[in-house]
Design a protein around this nucleic acid. Structure first.
Length: 598
RNA sequence: GUGCUCGUAGCUCAGUUGGAUAGAGCAGCCGCCUUCUAAGCGGCCGGUCGUGGGUUCGACUCCCGCCGAGCACGCCA
């Protein structure tokens, strides 16, 4: 017996077949199959209610007609019941659950199934995330974009998209004039000290130089003027200034990568704002020529009169400024050039921006402008989506800062997470060797930071709490990693191997309530995965994995795997193998590393 | 002022895009380790879903009013 990856989709199409047989008006009937609350079975279909209403029938009678017409392949798969006013409830038969377990037994089988059933398979998606500024260390404000962006990229790739990860770093702007000015001052004053500092902690030193330059420019107009001159030299290609600027970029990117390594992030491209310097001219020309942009107060702007808040008639007009009055580019200019580049050069079908939701207005105007621009120039617009996320708040409900009011460095935050995890590992697993405890602490600590961020709906503000995050209970990384470690432990103790062919063949039919509950939850992976793709919200996957780990833990407590009966042992080992597969696959989609012991 | 987002248990959050008796975790209380990892499991307690109307077989979900919060609004990104 083969098994569909998405039972919900299979039920949906069977219901449509039945509806045709029963003489339903197919234009009015949509089955609306979804995962049901456990007490109602595995799936429910609510579409009969809406259909009966439109056609003025008794819903229960319509449901009965439909059920009578169900094809044999569906009734072989699941028990069907009509409930309440006309809900259809489906409970998969144990054989159907077992068929799914048999069919999706390896990482490659799971991935192939997810991709083949996916609406985005074969599409090219650019995911634009992290995007820090060079010459500054990443701080807590950069956490969510990196973590959520990586999870979204992995979820899209698993669903069969060709994913291009692009780090759109902020490597251009007025700040570089000030840094270069301060750099040259330091060079003239004490060259040896400057080089020593740049050798030891290069990014920190450039960040310090920026502050020096910025403070000096604020205090002294002559410095401000000198900084501007350095900026002009940089922009006109002066060799010395360009070399300094390049070095800033290099040390920044290599410092960023140390943090990305902890999160498992590797970008395909790091095309920052500077990359689009020579590409904005074409944008200006085109959007003026096609009448999308206009001059206003010396700047090149776009109004969207059909939207009250972007209209020229608004009380406080808020145009999309594409070129500043002084002729310089801003982020609107480079963002437009970036869309064109991704459409042309990458042949992208979609471009996703994982950026703070406070920039929602900017992206709305950007997308509206791109839409009009592409339409007037006869191009096909790609899918553009702003995946906005909320602010990281402290437990006082205000944006998270250090006690002295500074931004918390991401490096420090991750170190503290690892240190806190280490204390727990020492307490709980003191018998493990030192090196392994250190490795566990890093995976649990970093994973907790990632998971705490991902587990909540990304668009809400996120209240950061050390205690809840590192906590071992509830919907946390540690709970999931613990379930994985226990699964590995079972295989170690029983000297078994996940997916072993003899064990799979010896498995007898599922019997106990906890076995069946675990099998049911495993089958729902398909629904969680596809919903995560459809909504681009990793928390739906987190929630599913948490529930799976919970059902597994209940199974673990109720049904012992290492029993004498070979058939029982084999079927429980198979359940464990599949649980391990789905948990590890899911955690990997979120960007977390897993453990064999903890 | 204009607009966007939000308000669910003491706390932190879900709620499958209008479905069934609104769900978890934490905190509190009660149980469970001579058996595969107790970083675990089982149970109890806890809600007029901010508020008042409306739409309909059905509303936490959609519409309107009010109260409260956060955010964004011309040349930073």
């Amino acid at each position: 017996m083969s098994a569909p990856f998405h039972y919900a989709t299979a039920l949906d199409s069977s219901l449509k077949t039945a509806a045709a047989t029963a003489g339903f008006d197919l234009a009015l009937f949509a089955p609306e199959v979804r995962v049901a609350a456990a007490q109602h079975g595995d799936f429910q279909a609510n579409g009969v209610l809406a259909y009966a209403k439109q056609t003025k029938q008794n819903p229960r009678a319509a449901a009965q007609t439909l059920v009578a017409a169900l094809p044999a392949e569906l009734t072989a798969l699941a028990d069907v019941a009509i409930a309440g006013p006309g809900f259809l409830n489906f409970t998969l038969k144990p054989a159907a659950l077992e068929a799914w377990l048999a069919a999706y037994a390896t990482p490659s089988a799971l991935a192939a199934a997810a991709a083949s059933a996916s609406p985005i398979a074969g599409q090219t998606w650019v995911v634009d995330y992290s995007s820090p500024n060079t010459a500054k260390q990443m701080h807590v404000g950069h956490l969510r974009s990196a973590v959520i962006g990586e999870a979204v990229a992995r979820i899209a790739a698993f669903a069969g998209a060709r994913v291009i990860r692009d780090n759109h770093i902020g490597d251009w702007g007025t700040s570089f004039g000030k840094i270069i000015w301060a750099y040259k001052q330091a060079l003239a004053t004490d060259r040896a000290a400057l080089e020593a500092a740049l050798d030891a902690t290069p990014l920190e030193e450039f960040e310090r130089l920026y502050k020096v330059g910025n403070t000096a420019a604020d205090a002294d107009p002559a410095v401000l003027e000198a900084s501007r001159a350095e900026l002009v030299k940089l922009q006109s290609g002066d060799a010395e200034n360009t070399a300094i600027w390049r070095r800033i970029g290099e040390v920044s990117v290599s410092a960023f990568q140390k943090i990305y390594d902890l999160f498992g992030i590797r970008f395909d491209h790091t095309l920052g704002e500077s990359f689009y310097n020579d590409k904005v001219g074409r944008v200006y020309d085109e959007i003026q020529a096609c009448g999308v942009a206009e001059e206003s107060q010396g700047a090149l702007v776009v109004f969207h009169d059909e939207h009250p808040r972007f209209s020229r008639h608004a009380e406080r007009p808020n145009p999309f400024i594409v070129r500043k009055a002084d002729g310089a580019a801003n982020y609107a200019s480079t963002d437009l050039a970036t869309i064109l580049y991704r459409a042309e050069h990458f042949a992208a079908d979609a471009s996703l921006y994982v950026v703070d939701k406070r920039q929602g207005d900017h992206f709305e105007q950007l997308f509206l402008t791109a839409q009009k621009w592409f339409e007037k120039t006869g191009r096909k617009l790609i899918r553009l989506e702003h995946l906005g996320f909320g602010t990281v708040l402290g437990e006082d409900g205000r944006p998270l800062k250090t006690r002295s009011g500074e931004n918390i460095k991401l490096k420090d935050l991750l170190q503290e997470a690892t240190d806190r995890a280490r204390r727990l590992v020492d307490e709980k697993s003191g018998e493990l060797p030192e090196a392994e405890r250190a490795a566990i602490a890093e995976i649990v600590g970093i994973g907790s930071v990632q998971y705490a961020d991902l587990a909540q709906n990304r668009s809400s503000d996120y209240t950061f709490s050390w205690d809840k995050m590192i906590s071992l209970e509830g919907n946390t990384a540690a709970y999931l990693l613990y379930a994985v470690a226990r699964l590995h432990s079972i295989f170690r103790k029983l000297e078994a191997r996940p997916g072993d062919a003899n064990t799979e063949a010896a498995a007898t039919a599922l019997e106990t309530a906890t076995e069946l509950a675990l099998a049911r939850k495993l089958v729902q992976f398909a629904d969680a995965q596809s919903q995560a793709v459809a909504t681009l919200r990793p928390h739906v996957l987190c929630l599913y994995l948490y529930e799976l780990a919970g059902v597994f833990s209940a199974f673990y407590g109720a049904d012992k795997v290492g029993v004498d009966d070979a058939g029982v042992r084999a079927r429980r080992l198979r359940l464990c193998a599949r649980t391990l597969l789905v948990l590890e696959t899911g955690l990997q989609l979120l960007g977390l590393r897993t453990l064999n012991r903890m």
